[in-house]
């Protein structure tokens, strides 16, 4: 059996009476980069947030490298250390410096020594190109730099996979490129990635597979060349027309 990083089956999610995920079956293989696209309100962010249980699924199962994270007895905190997550709003800790942001979970969760955590921090900050900001507070950084620190904060935990929730949507247009560059490099290094995004050119270029969601279901999935350039479903075509016209 090929290693499956994320395996989602029969996933349903209700917010009150509203069903936002209507039975999702979906897999991400080890080392695969999957971009999830679709109109807002299609449930793509909710799906991503269910993967590390920031959102509680109503029913269905999600296996993280074979371990069921939806099991009520699952050690969710432990499993989450294997899943990095990057948010639209960065969510850096404003009361800590860049170094503090990148070391605090290493120290408190992984119980790494101060020395080791600083070493790892320097390594990952260098990898995302913000090592020179190590002693700054997040508020002094541009949006692009903040998001790269957020990526480094996740990488410092040595995750097996990374989730990206519209990582460039809160950025000024001229800062999007630097974040996408970092993500592209991650993909090249073989990181397993699930990316919710509106950046079609990024999906086209970097994704192994594109998933189009609408109305809480997966409408279409396949290689980017197929889904983005030659979509089968009418809904996908309509969405792409709208996005590309912008």
């Amino acid at each position: 059996m090929t290693a499956c990083a994320i395996k989602i089956s029969e996933l349903h999610k209700y917010f009150g009476k509203l069903e936002v995920l209507k039975g999702i079956d979906f897999e991400v293989a080890m080392g695969e980069v999957v971009c999830v696209v679709g109109p807002s309100g299609s449930g793509k962010s909710t799906l991503l947030r269910c993967v590390n249980r920031l959102e509680e699924p109503t029913s269905g199962t999600i296996l993280i490298e074979g371990d069921d994270i939806t099991d009520p007895d699952a050690d969710v905190d432990r499993l989450r250390t294997r899943i990095g997550m990057v948010f639209q709003q960065f969510n850096l800790f404003p009361h800590l410096t860049v170094l503090g942001n990148v070391t605090i979970a290493q120290r408190k969760v992984l119980k790494r020594s101060e020395k080791e955590s600083v070493e790892v921090a320097r390594q990952v900050l260098d990898r995302v190109g913000v090592l020179d900001k190590i002693d700054e507070y997040p508020i002094r950084l541009s949006g692009g730099q903040q998001q790269r620190v957020a990526i480094a904060r996740s990488l410092a935990m040595d995750p097996d996979m990374m989730l990206f929730d519209e990582p460039t949507s809160a950025l000024d247009p001229e800062l999007i490129g630097e974040v996408l560059d970092v993500m592209r490099k991650l993909a090249e290094d073989g990181m397993t990635m699930m990316v919710v995004t509106h950046e079609m050119s990024f999906a086209q270029e970097v994704a192994d597979r594109v998933v189009f969601m609408d109305g809480g279901v997966v409408v279409e999935e396949g290689p980017p060349a197929e889904v983005l350039s030659n979509p089968k479903a009418e809904r996908t075509r309509r969405f792409l027309r709208m996005v590309l016209e912008k």
């Binding site: 590390n52 920031l54 905190d77 432990r78 989450r80 250390t81 899943i83 990095g84 997550m85 948010f87 709003q89 969510n91 850096l92 800790f93 404003p94 009361h95 605090i104 979970a105 408190k108 969760v109 992984l110 957020a150 904060r153 996740s154 935990m157």
Partner: peptide, 30 residues
Amino acid sequence: VPWGQSEAARSLGMSSNRTMFTIVLPQAFR
């Protein structure tokens, strides 16, 4: 303190208590 702060801490594997005491309360006290 914005909810995203807790989500970021939890996604890094911190327990809810750890999140409260190392991430939320220091910001709340300011």
